[in-house]
Amino acid sequence: MNHDVMKDQPIIAYNNGAVSEINDTIALEVPITILVNGIEFGTMMCTPTHIEEMTIGILASEGVILTPSDIDSLSILKEKGYVYVQLKKEDVPIDSYATKRYIGSCCGKSRKFYFQNDVRTAKTVMTKHDIHAEQIINLMEEMQENAINFQQTGGLHNTALCTTAELIVNRSDIGRHNALDKVYGYCLKNKVPLKDKVIVFSGRISSEVLLKVSKMGVGIMLSKSAPTTLAIDLAKDLGITTVGFIRGGRFNVYTHPDRVSFD
């Protein structure tokens, strides 16, 4: 058992009239507070694995850093629940990143961004890379087969970065946003190019999830679940192909179907 991901919990189980006391495997949730240049950036409720990747992914997606080379030092005190990040630039206005304010901005299109940082960091994806219907089914199956922690707990979201042919890296977390940040952090640390990649996702595609994918620069997103209306609107404008309800040999294409081939 990976004790950073799960723990046993005694429970009372009821099954067709029978009551029993058993141990169940439960997903671990802990607070991790990130401090940047000595200022509290935010606290993430997360699964305490791949914390460095998650921190890098969060800071990049919020526009605090462009690459890991902007970080002078990063130290993790897992037992106390803190990550200390020192940037090479000491005059970065951390408070302006940590405090998100509601705004509406068209940015020349029909987009509606609700957070200031998203206006600055969201990217329109221009990739021409495409994917075949059978590859969509296969990638979802491969991600689920590799989701060992989910199979043991039933309480984690999974995100995989893939080529159209195979899985590259898989990350899990109680929070779907955190799982994406861990994948993004992995890519930044290892200088993985993202234009020709695919994100495979276990959860609902919300507007926040869609924006994170756009900030990564990935043009194809596959999910076992459904997108929201705002996520679809953003995907149309940001050039992202969204495919949902990938289950049992079927799926729905919601935006930019030109990247999906069926022949």
Rank of each mutant, 00 (worst) to 15 (best):
V213W: 09
G154P: 08
I246T: 04
D118K: 10
F201L: 04
H177I: 09
M126S: 14
Y114F: 12
K189Y: 01
K224M: 08
H256W: 09
M221V: 09
I11S: 11
R204H: 07
T121Q: 07
I174S: 00
N16D: 14
I22A: 08
G219L: 03
K100C: 08
A179L: 06
M45A: 07
A98M: 09
T43M: 09
L230A: 13
K215A: 12
T159E: 02
Y102R: 13
C106K: 05
V92G: 02
L87G: 08
P10E: 04
I232G: 02
S110C: 10
V5M: 04
A133S: 07
I12M: 12
N149R: 14
K215Y: 07
G175N: 08
P93G: 06
P93N: 11
M216S: 05
E40D: 14
M221E: 13
L188H: 12
T127D: 03
D24F: 05
G17M: 05
I22M: 11
I34P: 04
M6D: 06
F201K: 00
Y102F: 14
L156S: 02
L66V: 12
A60H: 07
N178R: 00
S206R: 01
G248L: 09
A122V: 13
L230Q: 14
K7N: 09
E141H: 06
L188M: 10
L66N: 11
I246E: 03
S225P: 01
V36H: 04
Y114H: 12
V64W: 11
K7F: 14
V83A: 08
V83K: 11
L222S: 04
V192D: 04
H3S: 13
K112R: 13
H3D: 14
T127M: 00
L167T: 11
S75A: 10
Q135H: 02
A179I: 04
R111T: 13
A98E: 12
T67A: 14
I137L: 14
